[in-house]
Amino acid sequence: MEVRIISDPMKADTRRREIKTSSKREVTKISEIYVCLAAIMLIGIMLLGGIYTNICAKNVQSQYRLEDLREEKAKLEKERLSLRLEVNKLSSLERIEKIAEKELGMAHPANRYILDMRNHSVLQASLTDIAAADSGLDGSRE
């Protein structure tokens, strides 16, 4: 290591000041870098924090949505059952009979007549016609 002895006190003082200034400059430079790094990190952390918060918020939001949907599903299922019950109530034979008799003025038939289709010639003929028409339709489809 080379050691230079400066005999002039003025020079020595200037030199000391220079060294001091340059070291000060270096320190400032380094600290600026650190500040920059810190700022970048801070921004990064803030960004990450923001993203994380956003994800969390969305997660909570979707959880709320899920809860709502679950409730909605239960509600709809209940509604389905209620409607099924209502349909069954409305289609009860007792109710239908009551409406038929009281509102529509219908009555149970006192006399019932039977038309025996097996021995009815006119009906037999029309049934044959229908059967023939049906087979014709089938043929045209082919």
């Binding site: 006192a110 006399n111 019932r112 007549y113 039977i114 038309l115 025996d116």
Partner: peptide, 18 residues
């Protein structure tokens, strides 16, 4: 019904009565 005429006969009789 096995005997549809029986039903028709009954119905006719009742109709006459009415």
């Amino acid at each position: 019904p096995s005997f549809p005429n029986e039903i028709n006969k009954m119905a006719g009789e009742q109709q006459e009565k009415t």
